[in-house]
Nucleic acid binder design. Structure first.
Lengths: 221, 221
DNA sequence: ATTAATGTAAGATAAATTCCTACATTATGA
DNA sequence: TCATAATGTAGGAATTTATCTTACATTAAT
């Protein structure tokens, strides 16, 4: 009988950590040997015990996940690192992978994907979320530090973004035009171009897009 | 032997949900009878099954937690609502409590606190994170004894809110009409009535209003 | 039982959007 | 560096949408 994969959990949400621990311990192949909510304490833990895989959240107090990963690598611990986070921000993933993480799983993922990811990185192989792997591998390999493929700050021109912000807030084209001292026609052009660039056909999709990229103002109380 | 407390889980992070489910099911007093990652599906679930407590995350796709809570209340489901979130933003907590949540637990909390919270709200009593309870109780009691005068759930009719949601998401009147199987004219009437009720003159003000009251869907990653 | 609110919708008119085209002015890549 | 793509700007005509007004049946409330 082969031995279980020893896991350390690092996530600052205690109740979720507890659930995750149970989830993993419930599987015959895994055993959680340590857990912590704090980046610095991860390093302390590694002094005390050995484990095969570290499942780490990028956002933790004291020492962020990224920093922690770098430190682990620079100290030469042989532990495999699997990043578990809710951001699917490509920037973060790339940074984490470059820093020495072997794999990346979103919190949105289901349990089975987590299990597979743990096993994969435990074998020393990379694991990337299927959704991101294509893009990521490309951008990791080509080493182009450009932002995510549909990021508004790379895809849309400044003026277009400006117009977008007004439009999605319910301003009509003419109103937007007035706000920005542009002809309605110009606003129209921007809108058309944005739709083309983003491959959209409905105004509501533009709103979705703006929502996705936080282009709407924060809730004002 | 008294029956277990039936729980529905609503959190968009599947792997965490799985852990949480195991954590709760592991306790003799609880049983998770349903789970979902989506605000709208919470409502669908409530149609299908009955449960005692809904544990809900505030940030979910399609329909944010706040909106979802309000809708549950407006539909009159007797389920007790416990908010589980990582934000310790007082504003959010207040809003959630005002909207009808009975309790609030941070994801940072340990499992035992979660258990206590579930039991507390199940009895119909409020549960507030010890850290926040002081502040909150105060501001809940002093600052807002009344439903805020322009709350959409007191001012607007259900159908009006429905229409509003589509309109502010960039759907045209005709599109909204199609979505809701209404004549454009009917949609028009609702819009006009809402504007009158709220004393607004511009569509953009409607969007602001929706933004203020979380009537837009949460950012979908 | 009468009024107020709600859910529904049509017609005529006014306004906004769409589609196509156009043209300087930068960037930018070959 | 020279062609080409991207950007910022806008007009006209055709079409779609929105607005304003009015209407009516059904509940909810007083």
């Amino acid at each position: 009988m082969k031995s279980k994969i020893k896991i350390i959990l690092a996530d600052d949400h205690a109740v979720l950590r507890a659930g995750l621990k149970l989830l993993l311990n419930n599987e015959p192949d895994f055993i959680v040997v340590g857990e912590t909510s704090d980046g610095e304490k991860v390093l302390a833990l590694l002094e005390e015990l050995t484990a095969d895989v570290l499942i780490i959240d990028l956002s933790m107090p004291n020492m962020g996940g990224l920093e922690c990963i770098k430190e682990i690598k620079s100290r030469g611990y042989p532990i495999k690192i699997l990043v578990l986070t809710m951001y699917e921000d490509e920037q973060y993933i790339k940074e984490a992978m470059r820093s020495g993480a072997l794999g990346y799983v979103e919190k949105h993922a289901v349990d089975t994907e987590l299990f597979i990811a743990v096993k994969t990185v435990n074998m020393g192989q990379r694991y990337l979320n299927p959704h991101n792997s294509q893009l990521l591998l490309n951008s990791l390999l080509t080493n182009t530090p450009k932002e995510s493929a549909d990021d508004p700050y790379t895809l849309l021109s400044p003026r277009e973004r400006e117009v977008l912000k007004y439009m999605v807030r319910g301003y009509s084209m003419s109103q937007t035009g007035k706000m920005l001292c542009l002809s309605v026609k110009t606003v129209d052009t921007y809108k058309t171009r944005m739709m083309e660039k983003l491959g959209l056909t409905e105004k509501s999709q533009l709103v979705d897009y703006a929502l996705k990229y936080d282009l709407l103002p924060a809730k004002s109380e």
